[in-house]
Design a protein around this nucleic acid. Structure first.
Lengths: 175, 175
DNA sequence: GTCTATACGCGGATAGAC
DNA sequence: GTCTATCCGCGTATAGAC
């Protein structure tokens, strides 16, 4: 399965529109225009709306796996990495982050997106448990990160938490 | 503004469909059928799709305000109440809970729903800060609760956390 | 590969009978 | 108040030219 650059540009546009306008509002026409092609052109690359969704899902899975791997290799540790990026990315807006937010938004409607989201969350929880040892600490950190995502999706920020990541991690651990 | 029973039945059906199928998938036809009326009948009570949304929003706000008041009056305290219900309700499925989940799902697409959601979250955070004193503790508990909601929306459960609410609250507080 | 034109179905909304 | 019938616009998908 080759990856012609045009496919990616279309997926980028789709992702962006889902993030900003929410799913279902997004029409093929809108995606095509944003990607700089016509509706017909888009449908050459992705035969249907369903195929377009599948493309986004697949890419989101891949980006998330890479991100998780990066976290595992990061000196700061998985837990710190997860909280830090959860808080920072809404501003930075990396590809992974955008893809993940799109994934969650799509999850409200599409069962396959919901499943993909669960898989991603499970991956982080596993990595956190592995690193922190204590299951409750891991679940706690995971929940906080998830909560930050929810807020971002709803248009809320979590600065307070972002400024105190180290303290949060300290409290999460058993005393 | 009187509250004829039929209006509520329609809003119930709408809420239920949004929770199960996600927004936008829900057609007026489907809502009408689920509520036991025809499309025309529904449109007598709610002049448009927009009006229907507004009805749900308003009711969700009211239910949430009541719930928050109940939490403030609860012997267990706001923090415990918030975490406990966040974990338990996905199973129990009270009206408030359903309305809130519908609200969040709608928030991915509708700006007004997003705003209503932010208002609800802000209300809980304020009550938590008031009760716990320490702002970070409050933000931490709030984030955990929000994370539990995100999981529920994505079809994930948070049993692990639910079994250890007291311990979570202990860790959330300053040491 | 990418475009234009077009067919088709569906969902929202109105009109008017009962 | 609630229903049926109908109109209209929009979004997906196809056909076929370039």
């Amino acid at each position: 399965m080759p990856r012609p650059s045009q496919r990616d540009r279309i997926l980028d546009a789709y992702t962006e529109l889902v993030v900003t306008s929410g799913p279902e509002t997004v029409t093929l026409e809108a995606v095509a225009t944003a990607a700089g092609v016509s509706k017909g052109g888009l449908l050459y690359h992705f035969g249907s709306r369903e195929a377009l969704l599948e493309g986004l899902l697949e890419r989101a899975r891949g980006l998330n796996a890479d991100d998780l791997a990066a976290a595992r290799a990061a000196p700061e540790g998985v837990a710190h990495y997860y909280l830090r990026t959860s808080v920072d990315e809404p501003v930075a807006g990396s590809p992974v982050y955008r893809a993940t937010v799109a994934l969650i938004k799509l999850a409200t409607t599409e069962p396959r997106a919901a499943e993909a989201t669960r898989a991603c969350l499970a991956g982080w929880r596993a990595a956190l448990t592995e690193e922190l040892g204590d299951p409750l600490s891991a679940d706690l950190v995971a929940a906080v990160g998830d909560g930050i995502y929810l807020r971002a999706i709803v248009g809320d920020s979590s600065e307070g938490l972002g400024a105190a990541i180290d303290e949060v991690l300290r409290r999460a651990s058993p005393r």
